[in-house]
Structure formats: structure tokens, C-alpha cells
Design a protein around this nucleic acid. Structure first.
Length: 411
DNA sequence: TATCCACAGGAACTTGGGGCTA
DNA sequence: TAGCCCCAAGTTCCTGTGGATA
């Protein structure tokens, strides 16, 4: 009986008319046919890269700008156009895009590059210089210009700049091929950690992407909405409101597109025929909660224990908890769930990582004769975060746990 | 003004897992 | 199977910090 009613599950849902024509247009992976308010940056980048079409090596480029300012979209757009033109004029030119958030080690980066040129490189096991040699041999087999786009290049630099040093000098070892790099970062200061030789080589040209203002974001949204949504589906206030929310977040166009998409999805789920202001406001809340839930759910167990320690102290009335207090409670939790107790040094790092993720706010304060520590405040809603933490089977057994608090607490 | 506290955080090192080659 | 490599996570050791206190 139950199966019979489920048979038509998707048929029923498919009968509801969608508000979207093409939802993919609102996703970050989409590269639009034109980029409003980025003409200057597109032209600058194209001017630098045009030498690839003459068979020369373009200068290496560093692109800076905050999240959602169009850096990646511009680089990919110009890359696509460059490849298209090179085909027209029979110049071999490849543009490779790698995100260093995912490919964040020297070995993985080189292995990915080599694989692109048909080399069979294992996930691990080879000496890095062997992978580099394979990559060089693969690209130098024929005359070509290769542009490597390294998105979020700062993530790669955190684990050493050897790979950037090697790549920046690769042209001296090549006979046929020519390699140029485009580094994309939202951290203006990341080059401070680079070897001066890498710094000067990588930053031959620099392009800064300023944040969009609310009006510019509105233009971008209108352009995408006309492709993504059916006609007359969006209420008048939807785009200005999405733009205003995104402009508050340092002109983040990506956030604006997310808001526009999620607002539509919420309206669709409620079988509405229009997307209105309430949908945008609910979308704003949903995106933030989804982000927190996803981040907390995917934390390593040790980080979850550190976070749960902060929450237990908060539930016991402590507003600003210190590293020492957190560590005391953390040790008790570890014993209760039969986990290894990490050193305080390591727990300090876990707290710093939670701070960077925006789950905690940890500020270093000096309490004079009572030492120097971090004051830690939760930045996420307690109840929903607690529920997510207790979903972990190891933490589930801590549901009714009450810590013994012995430290000198400052209420 | 020197001392003290409770850490912060950098650097070097260790450990253990996964994978490759000979 | 031994020996090597990469890599993430963790440990150990160390110096630095800054404001209250004696």
C-alpha cells in the first residue's frame, strides 16, 4: 500500500511547475558570456595573455580581491576566450584551472598537472621531483603555451612555496613548451610568506579586483535572473534586497547569487508562483545556518570535543571561557568517550582553527599577574550546534554529561 | 620597576597510514 | 617484502607576551 503511494512521488513533484528556466546560471561554477563591471579587469588580463597567441610566454600574474568579486570568473572567462582564439589561429595553447583549496600540496598539484597531459601518476608514493620531471617531459613533448590558473594560491603557500619556486623557473628547463602562471588570492598579504625570488617572479603583473557596490550587484543579478528565472516570477524587491544583503558582506556577488537561487527554491517548495521579499530573508537565514551545520558536522572528533567543551562551560554560565578552562573540560570529555587526550598545545591549535571557521571568537587577552590566555566566545547558535554535535555517535553518549569545573573561573 | 603567570604560537621532530618500486 | 616517499596529525621544546602585583 505504502509503496503504491510512493510510486508517484516524483511524478507529483514534477507536475509542480518550476519557477526556473535554468538554475545552473546561479551557481558559482557557471561562467557567463559577459561580465558586467569587470571590463577593465578582463581587458587588462587579455592584454597580458595575448602574447601566448604570438607563441611567447605571458608574464606571470597575481589577481587579488575579496570573495565574490569575480576573480575566478574573469580568469576562466579570459582563459576560455584565449583557448578559442588559439584554435582559430592554430597556436597550441592550454589553460589549466586548479583550486588550491582542494589540491593543496606540492605533490598533488604536480600530479594533477602531469595527469592533464596524459601521465599516469599515483595519488602518492613517488618522490616529488620525479613527478615534476614527468610533468616537464609531458609538456615539453611539443611546442605549446600553457597557462596555469592557481585559484586560492595562498592555501598552497601555507604548506611551503617550493612548488611555486619550481614552476616559476620551469621555463629555463623547457625547449618547446612555455609556462605561465596566474595566481588568485583573497589574501593581499600572502606574498609576505614567499621566497623573494618567487615573489618577484610570480608577481610580474598584479590585478586588483575591487568589491562590487549594491548597484553593480543588482546589474549582475538582473543579467543572471533573466536567464535563470521564468518571466515575471521575481517580485520587484527581490533583486534590490539580495544586492543589499550581499553588499553588506563586502560586495560578495557569489553570496547574492546564492540568495537569489535559494529564495527561488524556497518559493518553489511552498508552491508559490512568485519569489518575494520574505523568501529572500528566509534564504539569508537558511544559508547561514546551513553553512554552520555543514562546518560543524564535518569537524574532526577532537575539534568537536573542544567545541563541546566551550558549549558546556557556556551552559554553566561562563560567558568568556579561557583556553585552560576549555582544556580541563575537554580532558574529562575525552575520558568519558574513551578518546586520546591531546596536549594543550594541540588543543590551542584546534581552538584557533574553530576561530578561523567562524564557529568561535577567540581573542588573546592578558590578565596581568594571572597570565595571558585566549578568551573564547561562541559565535554560533547553541541549541542547533549542540544537536549537530550530538549526532556524532561518540559525542552522543555525552548528552547528559556534567563536567566538574574546578578552575578559577571568571564569571 | 622587576617579577610573575598562563598561556600563545613557532619550529623541529615523531608517528602512522597509504602507496610505489625493485 | 623491504625500503622509500608523501602527508596529516600530533608532540616536544622553546621563546615571547603584557598587564597586575609586590
Amino acid at each position: 500500500m505504502e509503496n503504491k503511494s510512493l510510486d508517484g512521488l516524483f511524478e507529483d513533484l514534477l507536475q509542480n511547475e518550476s519557477l526556473f528556466k535554468n538554475k545552473e546560471v546561479l551557481r558559482p561554477s557557471y561562467t557567463p558570456a559577459s561580465l558586467p563591471h569587470r571590463t577593465e579587469q578582463v581587458n587588462t588580463l587579455a592584454t597580458i595573455l595575448v602574447s601566448a597567441l604570438r607563441g611567447d610566454t605571458p608574464s606571470n600574474i597575481l589577481i587579488y580581491g575579496k570573495t565574490g568579486t569575480g576573480k575566478t570568473a574573469v580568469a576562466r572567462y579570459v582563459g576560455i576566450e584565449l583557448e578559442r582564439k588559439s584554435e582559430d589561429i592554430n597556436i597550441e595553447c592550454s589553460v589549466l584551472y586548479l583550486n588550491c583549496e582542494v589540491i593543496d600540496t606540492q605533490y598533488r598539484l604536480l600530479a594533477n598537472l602531469a595527469k592533464h597531459f596524459g601521465e599516469d601518476i599515483p595519488m602518492t608514493g613517488w618522490p616529488t621531483d620525479q613527478v615534476f620531471t614527468k610533468f616537464k617531459e609531458a609538456i615539453d613533448a611539443r611546442k605549446q603555451v600553457i597557462i596555469i590558473i592557481l585559484d586560492e594560491i595562498d592555501k598552497l603557500v601555507k604548506k611551503g612555496d617550493d612548488v611555486l619556486y619550481n614552476l616559476s623557473r620551469i621555463n629555463t628547463d623547457l625547449v618547446n613548451a612555455k609556462v605561465s602562471m596566474i595566481g588568485i588570492s583573497n589574501d593581499l598579504k600572502f606574498t609576505e610568506f614567499l621566497d623573494p625570488r618567487v615573489k618577484s617572479s610570480l608577481g610580474e603583473e598584479e590585478i586588483i579586483f575591487p568589491p562590487y557596490d549594491a548597484e553593480q550587484i543588482s546589474d549582475i543579478l538582473r543579467q543572471r535572473a533573466s536567464i535563470a528565472y521564468k518571466e515575471n516570477v521575481l517580485d520587484e524587491m527581490v533583486i534590490p534586497l539580495c544586492s543589499a544583503f550581499a553588499a553588506q558582506e563586502h560586495g560578495d556577488a557569489r553570496r547574492a547569487l546564492d540568495l537569489l537561487r535559494v529564495a527561488g527554491e524556497l518559493a518553489e517548495r511552498e508552491n508559490e508562483t512568485h519569489v518575494g521579499e520574505p523568501h529572500v530573508r528566509r534564504a539569508q537565514e537558511k544559508i547561514e545556518i546551513d553553512r554552520i551545520v555543514e562546518v560543524v558536522r564535518t569537524l574532526p572528533t577532537q575539534s568537536k570535543l573542544a567545541l563541546y567543551s566551550v558549549m558546556l562551560l557556556r551552559n554553566n554560565g561562563y560567558r568568556n571561557v579561557t583556553t585552560g578552562e576549555v582544556y580541563n573540560v575537554y580532558r574529562q570529555l575525552c575520558v568519558n568517550v574513551d578518546m586520546d587526550v591531546l596536549t594543550q598545545r594541540r588543543v590551542t591549535d584546534l581552538i584557533s582553527e574553530l576561530d578561523m571557521l567562524g564557529i568561535l571568537n577567540a581573542v588573546v587577552v592578558s590578565k596581568g599577574r594571572y597570565g595571558r590566555t585566549k578568551e573564547i566566545v561562541l559565535s554560533v547558535p547553541i541549541e542547533s550546534t549542540r544537536r549537530v554535535l550530538l549526532e556524532d555517535y561518540r559525542l552522543g553518549m555525552l548528552a547528559g554529561f556534567k563536567p566538574v569545573i574546578t578552575a578559577q573561573m571568571h564569571l
